[in-house]
Amino acid sequence: MRTTLSQILLLVGKDLRIEARSRQTLGLVITLGLLIVVVLGLGLGAEAAKGYSAMAVLWVAYLFSGVLCFEKTMAVERHEGAMAGLLLAPVDRGVIYLSKLIANLLMMLAVALVVTPAGVLFFSFDLSAAPLSFALIMGLGMLGVAAVGTLFAAVVSSTRLAGGLLAMVVFPVVLPVVIASTQLMLGIFRDGKELGGTGLAVLIAFDVIFVTVSWLVFEWILEP
């Protein structure tokens, strides 16, 4: 258990160090997220863009930025056969999955830290009623998206169709997460309901199922 944890920390640290040094991913995905907020905000028009549509727009920004994150972090492993180096080592493939998932999730959260305030300001969306509920719902949603995205990024990266295919595969699968979290937030911010109910259960169940299944099947889908 201790070895597993230290290996996960090593691999997450490696991904973050590579990102800090190359600055290839984060700057790009944050810019993309901001552009999506601005373009959709302007496109929806002044009235339509007010308030609750911010939630849907933010999800679009998180999803596209997330997919780009997943592609970039997996591309690092594919370059010069770095993944083969990992697979040669006595490291459980589930450990490789979990470390990649954590690194992707941290990058998505970094994107959210910049894009969310921009969206809130641009759409005049009042978060003050339940900021913690907002953070919890978005956090659970992002975990689900990252769980699916990390798995499919590994599958897609070994094919010739890597660019663009990932979004087409990930978006339909994570639809329940987007719908559940948007409904939950409408309930909280528009209708004044408490956090809970079916929507929250769907988010938690999605996360548990996809993290567990992905961790288990990673061994079979990972090609050096």
Binding site: K14, R17, I18, G81, G85, A89
Partner: peptide, 21 residues
Amino acid sequence: QAMLYRDLSPRENLRLFGKLY
């Protein structure tokens, strides 16, 4: 194929793989 991380130094690559072993 080098099986190395290009953005890391040789020392960082070796240390990473050593610790994984």
